[in-house]
Design a binder for these strands. Structure first.
Lengths: 147, 147
DNA sequence: TGAATTTAGTTTCAATTGTAACTAATATAC
DNA sequence: GTATATTAGTTACAATTGAAACTAAATTCA
């Protein structure tokens, strides 16, 4: 028998949204004030830390952020001196992005902070549950792809 | 051995945020255009559909939305004639909120739509996985409470 | 009681956000 | 080879958002 009444407190898209926003907010509080950096900027830094020399568009594809958001985050980081752009020789539409020394320093400070937060958060779950959650997220993403 | 490098594509707070935003966005597309109603307004309607006569503050507590957001959603719904406010006799700061006939009609139309979306989404998961996801969300919320 | 605090809800303001329209460069098609 | 379409990225604009300050009512406490 399918549900016919909507109980918001049982509705999964809603519950997912609430808990996720709580987590993202708590995490960003760990670094936002201290480094003057917002969520999109941090995500760009994290991507560049792992993949120096990628383009803004690569960041868009890897992060599922909007391209306007990325464009602005990149501009902000550049004006703060945290990253450098270098026009691609073969394709002048693209800019290759790299963290400056200062940007790398910020990355080196925030990354362990973020990992520590994740580790702490996941103490709430057993290793099994972490694996389950990962699999579930993959499946939900697959479903969203096909939708 | 704890992780020492941040892989954004493996970082759970991040993955959770991406998949959740995809889901919320897809769901709201199901009703936003058709009913001229945004996410916060819909959440207020859903709460009132289940709990007629609650106050704006009750909605805030049950939904984890910001009180400014709720205040504006209530005002918007009132001006569209979807809900009515009645000052509480015993405490004139509060307003008791109820859906109008029109508001109930909207609720009656959107609720099955939302439930259908959820049902479709959850076909991606086995019943076991749905139960696991629910338990995991509860545990993560518990962790966030204590943080 | 009457002053100080708390609570419900609103308003103001500035920041963040996404859609759409745009520029500039490259790739494709004829 | 030139016209057309696509791609990278930016800008303009309008809508959404939340923090902070506010009003009005109720509660606490001295």
């Amino acid at each position: 028998m399918a549900k016919t009444t909507l109980h918001l407190e049982k509705f999964l898209p809603y519950r997912l949204s609430v808990v996720t926003n709580r987590i993202s907010g708590a995490l960003s509080r760990h670094y936002a004030d201290r480094f003057g950096i917002g969520i999109p900027e941090w995500r760009v830094i994290a991507n560049l830390g792992r993949h120096p020399g990628i383009t803004a568009n690569d960041v868009v594809e890897q992060s599922a952020m909007d391209k306007v958001t990325v464009s602005r985050a990149v501009a902000a980081l550049e004006s703060k001196g945290l990253l450098a752009r270098k026009r691609d020789i073969n394709d002048k539409r693209k800019s290759r992005l790299t963290l400056s020394a200062k940007g790398q320093a910020v990355h080196a400070e925030i990354a362990p902070l973020a990992l520590g937060f994740e580790r702490d958060l996941l103490t709430a779950l057993s290793p099994d549950e972490v694996a389950q959650l990962e699999r579930i997220i993959d499946k939900l993403n697959g479903k969203m792809d096909s939708l």
